[in-house]
Design a protein around this nucleic acid. Structure first.
Lengths: 236, 236
DNA sequence: CGACAGACTCTTGTATACAAGTAACCGCAC
DNA sequence: GTGCGGTTACTTGTATACAAGAGTCTGTCG
């Protein structure tokens, strides 16, 4: 059951639905009836429908005319695409690092890393710090604006990571990789920074592959056929 | 005046409006009243509105509640962002080129280059070939899917290029740069390919800067202030 | 002549009504 | 039991009605 939201505008509905999809509260395959969502959120179909159109544009939702709307399964092709895009952007950004690094951003990143190292850290908190860390690195090279594109493209990747908590690399290991990148960046060793970043991103990608093997039902088939339509309605 | 479209569905309306914005038929600052567009296209407000929402998400349109919707001015920040993204993706893709290149794709690229070399080629045709060429290079390295993201992000860049035809690098020069990239790729010289690609993309970026100097009214101010709202209605 | 107030028009945002089609379900015939 | 046909409920797509605010224009008053 979805709780009604405060504001009844489209932005709120969109943000709510997007969050629920990304956090797997609405898992892949879940049915997203415009009428049901509108009733549950206490608004009319219009803002719900417009939100679904945007989510469909991001690939997080699939709309089948006259049939229904469903949360997308994780598409391996899109995951690989996001992985490549992310590597390309984050590695190239390292090449553009200025000689003198912004001390404020450096301090922020250092603080971020310290928080990542907290033992028993909540996974949602860790993901948030992870996002912030990578965004911070991009800002350091003056390409913070590119994060929006990367973030948008890697929606599928994130969903898989959030789900397969068991099979994923533990936060402590990720935090260690983050620190390796950060140390190399601070030392001005671009080559080492690139290497560490590549190792880190590849590890994330491998996580997704492991998750896929243990939770195949959340992934789309990769045989190039038409996407699955009728799905189990997992929600409620 | 906009001619009515064949199909009355949203996809058609969206494609029509997007094309008119990208080709500058609807120039930056043009007013986009949902009612007017609906009447002109022979549909209701609904598909028009949904199309405008998508275009706004791409940054091609700005919507001011209770005031109006307008074609966005070219935003230098977004242009630089798209430039960085494009460089990152296309250069990184070159690193991933396989040892043995797909002969079909090579033939396609060669044919494309021949068509680019036609003297007195129409500029719209050249832009189409340009797109196809860069997409082909990405396909060659197995990352064709990334083009969608690049293409989406570089909307602002394309608009500027299409407009400032006078100040832009002539097609023949661009075609020459394309051929230099292609030759290096075919020869397996990744370093040279990267160099040629960088030169080419930087030239495109410089074009935009020249266009900006001669057509400042089409660009948003880069002082970080709020975007211009009331604009000259260029259309009709 | 200038400034201010109010009406009016136009805008987007939201809610609702209608249209068209799909798929599931139920009952009947065999 | 099994297969088939019709009905029914539900889906998205589109059109329209209503709401609320912003901006302009005009008339009036000082």
């Amino acid at each position: 059951m979805l709780a009604p939201v405060a504001g009844k505008n489209r932005q709120t509905v969109y943000a709510t639905l997007r969050r629920k999809v990304l956090t797997m509260e609405l898992p892949p395959g879940a049915s997203l009836s415009e009428n049901e969502l509108a009733a549950a959120l206490g608004v009319s179909r219009t803002p719900v429908r417009e939100s679904l159109i945007l989510l469909a544009e991001e690939g997080l939702v699939q709309v089948f005319p006259k049939v229904g709307s469903f949360v997308s399964r994780v598409d391996p092709v899109r995951v690989a695409d996001a992985q490549f895009l992310r590597e390309a952007v984050e590695l190239t950004a390292l090449d553009d690092l200025p000689v003198v690094l912004d001390p404020d951003l450096l301090a922020e990143l250092g603080d971020n890393l310290r928080r990542q190292d907290q033992p028993g850290i909540d996974l949602e908190d860790f993901f948030a710090l992870d996002e912030e860390f990578h965004l911070g690195l991009l800002k350091l090279s003056g390409h913070g604006a590119a994060w929006a594109t990367v973030s948008n493209a890697k929606g599928h990747l994130d969903r898989a990571r959030r789900l397969g908590l068991h099979d994923a690399t533990p936060p402590a290991v990720n935090a260690g990789q983050h620190r390796a990148i950060f140390d190399a960046v601070r030392a001005g060793d671009i080559t080492e920074a690139r290497s560490a970043m590549r190792t880190h991103l590849r590890a994330v990608f491998d996580d997704v592959e492991r998750i896929r093997e243990s939770n195949p039902e959340l992934f789309a088939s990769n045989d190039g056929s038409t996407p699955v339509r009728r799905n189990v309605v997992v929600w409620d």
